[in-house]
């Protein structure tokens, strides 16, 4: 059986953000898994994927850090699939996989550090790294989801925002752009597909993969605020009531800069920001509190009540 049909039990790599600002994403991902009967086996003693900080200083160290997560999942836990809901982690594990397959120097560096650290060196191909979107799409699919919906998102207009790391750079995602059924790097649609199956109405949103300024949110807050403000305006102009996210950095950025945009530029936006797992969780009958809606900065409760979702 192909791996894409057996995501029933996967190694779960939440990453640092999901233990902090993205806590609601972590709990809603677990709740969705529970509601769908899917098992998440958290990677033991996981470490940072190398994120932006390490990658900018020494990309090979980032490759090692990501490889260690995959090595533990494969060699100590016996998994062949690692699921990372964070776009940054997902991207970095994919990049490490690519580097270890193509670059001899990366292989040597990773081997040297792995030996020093006292664990088996990860070898390219031992695991398949997937995103939370691949996980639900592969394990349950739209039809399976439709059958399980208890609380339809009917009437909720959603702009699906994927951010820039989920599909870029294309060469590290060889499984994408493979025709029908696969994800597209130019027009991603997995989140659209799943939320539509849960009853939502997706709007045409031209900035679904545009930059949110997440990497510069502290070093150049004004640019980040203006980028987010533009995303909010475009979502509202598209008729969206909610922006669905699948990345903790994008999500935090949208929420924080929505507040900042109001304070600094006097622009009050009404669009609500929710993780796609929160929306799916509620559609599957999980209570808003269990999926962490109260942890969001963006207060969506009145809208969810008005729509009969909460």
């Amino acid at each position: 059986m192909a791996k894409t049909t057996v995501y029933q039990k996967v190694a779960y790599y939440p990453g640092c953000a999901l233990e902090g600002t993205g806590h609601a994403y972590n709990r809603s991902t677990k709740e969705v898994g529970k509601a769908l009967g899917l098992e998440l086996d958290e990677v033991k003693n996981w470490n940072c994927c190398g994120a932006m900080e390490v990658k900018n200083i020494d990309p090979k160290i980032q490759t090692y850090l990501s490889s260690r997560v995959m090595s533990i999942a494969a060699n100590e836990m016996g998994h062949d699939v690692v699921m990372a809901p964070c776009n940054g982690c997902y991207h970095n594990l994919k990049k490490a996989e690519y580097d270890l397959e193509k670059d001899e120097e990366s292989k040597q560096v990773v081997d040297r550090i792995s030996k020093k650290a006292g664990h088996k060196t990860y070898e390219a191909g031992q695991v398949e790294t997937i995103h939370a979107l691949d996980w639900i799409k592969g394990a349950i699919g739209e039809d399976g989801l439709r059958e399980r919906v208890k609380n339809s998102l009917n009437g909720l207009k959603i702009a699906n925002y994927y951010g820039c790391m989920y599909t870029r750079p294309r060469h590290i995602f060889p499984e994408k752009d493979q025709g029908p059924g696969s994800e597209s790097t130019s027009q991603p649609h997995f989140m659209d597909d799943l939320l539509e199956a849960a009853g939502a109405e997706n709007v045409d949103f031209p900035l679904k993969t545009a930059c949110c300024g997440g990497a510069h949110t502290l070093s150049d807050s004004d640019t980040s605020t203006l980028l987010v403000l533009n995303i909010l305006r475009a979502a509202e102009a598209s008729g969206a009531e909610v922006i669905a996210t699948e990345c903790p950095t994008c999500h935090s950025g949208l929420e924080m800069h929505q507040v900042r945009a109001e304070k600094k530029y006097g622009y009050e936006s009404n669009v609500k920001i929710l993780y796609f797992t929160q929306l799916l969780g509620m559609a599957l009958g999980v209570k808003p509190k269990q999926v962490g809606v109260h942890e969001n900065v963006s207060d969506s409760m009145s809208l969810l009540k008005e729509k009969g979702i909460a």
Binding site: P206, L207, A210, C211, G213, H216, S219, D220, T223, L226, L227, N230, I231, R233, A234, A237, S238
Partner: peptide, 24 residues
């Protein structure tokens, strides 16, 4: 009119991204 407004917002995003990148 809606399409033009969306086009303007898309162009604005390009401007913000590139000008921000030039500063950084």
């Amino acid at each position: 009119a809606k399409r033009l407004e969306m086009m303007r917002l898309v162009a604005m995003h390009l401007y913000l991204f590139v000008s921000g990148k030039m500063q950084v």
